[in-house]
């Protein structure tokens, strides 16, 4: 298990005390199940990241979750065209809370070099994004760095964040229904 930051653990005979929030966050951060939404070139670099040289499994991400229902992290790697935008949004909506989004590569982040009639100019036009990884395509080290940033966010997220008005208004902006309390 990875390092649990800021977690004051009080050990005693037969018990251990810590803040529930931190314990849950640590558990989440060390077993993120990614859903690779790999469309193009960045997908190949993502495959290299999964491969034995870079080995994503080191970060508790051994299991690729190809079903959105059982995924925590949506990794969007590659160009998203306007034709694909609604599908991406549907995949995002199908994921259960809490969920995070990593946008890998220039195309997913901003359209990249493809400022053309058919390409969606950044996936943040259809779904909220947590971390952007620049590069065309990013090197595996960069993708891993992005994933580490996601881990940091997961570790430091308050338990109640997903129920906050702020979060709901974020989702409303994208016309996505949030979860009910």
């Amino acid at each position: 298990m990875g390092k649990i930051e800021d977690l004051q653990v009080i050990n005693g005979e037969g018990y251990q005390l810590g803040r529930l929030e931190k314990v849950v966050a640590a558990a989440r951060a060390n077993s993120v199940w990614p859903l690779p939404f790999a469309t193009s070139c960045c997908g190949i670099e993502y495959m290299a990241t999964m491969g034995s040289n870079y080995d994503l499994a080191r970060f508790g991400m051994e299991r690729m979750s190809f079903s959105p229902r059982q995924a925590d992290l949506l990794i969007v790697a590659g160009t998203i065209s306007k034709k694909l935008g609604p599908i991406l949004k549907q995949v995002y909506e199908q994921m259960a809370e809490p969920k995070w989004v990593l946008s890998v590569g220039a195309c997913a982040s901003s359209g990249g070099i493809f400022d053309t009639y058919s390409v969606l100019q950044g996936i943040d036009r259809v779904i909220p994004v947590d971390v952007y990884v620049p590069g065309c395509p990013p090197r595996p080290e960069q993708i891993i760095d992005g994933i580490m940033k996601i881990h940091d966010m997961v570790r430091n997220e308050p338990l109640r964040r997903r129920y906050s008005d702020e979060y709901k208004s974020l989702l409303n902006k994208y016309e996505i229904e949030g979860n009910e309390e």
Partner: peptide
């Protein structure tokens, strides 16, 4: 879209 009179760029930028 590939007819010459149409723009290449995305109109929403």
């Amino acid at each position: 879209p590939l007819r010459k009179e149409y723009h290449l760029e995305d109109a929403t930028r």
